[in-house]
Design a protein around this nucleic acid. Structure first.
Length: 375
RNA sequence: GGGGAGUUACCAGAGUGGCCAAAUGGGGUAGACUGUAAAUCUAUUGGCGAUGCCUUCGGUGGUUCGAAUCCAUCACUCCCCA
């Protein structure tokens, strides 16, 4: 995998680059739609590619391991073949699920023992088998197995947790280097930088992670309950110390404003469930602000969902989409998700263009102001 | 024509003397959602000058300190038999 920096913004750490993988190039900054169980909920791969212009999507180790199961994905020839997405895929390791599953899991030095949320059965994830599973899924970018701490963790817990994540990371890399890709194209393992809300822990985490000379680095444990300002501060602390010639991935972020602020601080890659989940729940992100399409005021508004939108679904009227969402018609969730994803991809693509043109800082300031509006 | 059951808030439907402005579900309104246990969850849903007050449980008139709840009567709905 190769990363080439194309441009760096003036008066900002914002960067534009090109990431080359076994399934093609990714222009950064990029937003990666989340396809947990092997599908971006409600969206066909054709729309993902041709309308939304997604360049890479996510899958999830935990979910795919439980269902359909790794043997079936291997039999299919890997996730790309299984879900008919021939562009890059990134899989998360399951570390976040171990965090969000709360009391049905138990951590130890060895790994995480957890119960399936589907049938209650017991399973064990270790750094080693999480790498093996991700080899079988066959994503282009795979993630280290980490512990994600809640935003309000205290220093001692954050420190101990970070140290566990670091020991797990070493085991991840040993396993990664002792195994081969299964489907004939290269895979890259990204470490995850933890350290919660403590700058000194974050700095320690960065220096540890750099020793692996990975193809890219991820920042985890943010947007998990801490104030947004803290998230930005931690992002700054981390990107300041990361090597400039490798992509940086801020995991799980975020709102359109979060994304612009993080690009400004030197982040290249993002993923978030917001455009799809919030879309299903009636929230639309547009360049003029956010819309709760369920609100009564759209009941008889026959103007397009987003006049400036790039997706063909943006031509549906607000009144029609409101009707679909309120009626719980599945098409409503599909249209809203597609609109939001197209908007997110438009946002990062435009940011890239502005960085290259040297106009990022001013453009970002104006966009943030508009994006904060509620329509 | 005879016998029986019923009428409760936007809808359905509990409640059968005080703890009832009235359970529960639906619908309505608003909010939340950040590496997806989410096509989910939460709040609110008679009026108001609002830790209280006013009007409400088919209509009217009673009994009672007190009635959605008991009695009388009228209206309407449904079921069974002719």
């Amino acid at each position: 995998m190769n990363f080439e920096l194309t441009a760096i913004s003036d008066n900002s750490r914002a960067r534009a680059g090109i990431l080359t993988t076994g399934h093609g190039k990714i222009e950064t900054p990029i937003f990666m739609p989340v396809g947990t169980a092997g599908s971006v909920k409600g969206i066909h791969t054709r729309d993902l590619k041709e309308d939304i212009h997604a360049q890479i999507i996510l899958g999830n180790t935990y979910h795919l391991y439980l269902r359909p199961g790794i043997e079936i994905i291997e039999k299919a020839g890997g996730l790309h073949k299984f879900n008919r997405w021939d562009k890059p895929i990134l899989t998360d390791s399951g570390g976040f699920q171990v965090f969000s599953l709360g009391d049905i899991r138990k951590l130890s030095e060895e790994g995480a023992r957890f119960q399936s949320h589907i049938d209650g059965s017991y399973h064990m994830f270790t750094p080693e088998n999480v790498i093996d599973i991700q080899r079988s899924i066959g994503a282009d970018i795979i993630m280290a197995f980490d512990e994600c701490t809640p935003g309000n963790a205290d220093f001692d817990y954050a420190k101990k947790s970070l140290e566990l994540t670091q020991r797990w990371l070493e085991r991840c890399f040993v396993q990664f280097r002792n195994t081969q890709p299964k489907y004939g194209y290269e895979q890259s393992l990204f470490p995850i930088i933890q350290g919660n809300t403590f700058p000194e822990l974050r700095r320690l985490a960065v220096s540890h992670v750099k020793t692996f000379d990975a193809d890219g680095y991820a920042i985890g444990g943010l947007s998990v309950g801490e104030p947004e300002q803290v998230m930005y501060e931690m992002t700054e602390v981390v990107t300041a110390d990361l090597p400039p010639n490798k992509p940086r991935y801020l995991m799980g972020v975020g709102t359109p404003v979060n994304i612009l602020e993080a690009i400004d601080r030197g982040i290249d890659m993002f993923d978030c469930v917001m455009p799809t989940r919030n879309g299903r729940n009636g929230m639309l992100f547009t360049s003029e602000g956010t819309i709760n399409i369920r609100n009564q005021k759209w009941e008889n508004d026959h103007s397009p969902i987003d006049e400036n939108g790039t997706s063909y679904v943006d031509q549906y009227s607000k009144a029609y989409l409101r009707h679909l969402i309120v009626s719980k018609e599945m098409l409503g969730a599909q249209i809203a998700s597609q609109h939001n994803l197209a908007f997110y991809l438009w946002l990062v693509k435009t940011a890239r263009q502005k960085i290259i043109n040297g106009e990022f800082v001013g453009w970002k300031r104006e966009m943030v102001e508009k994006l904060n509006r509620r329509l």
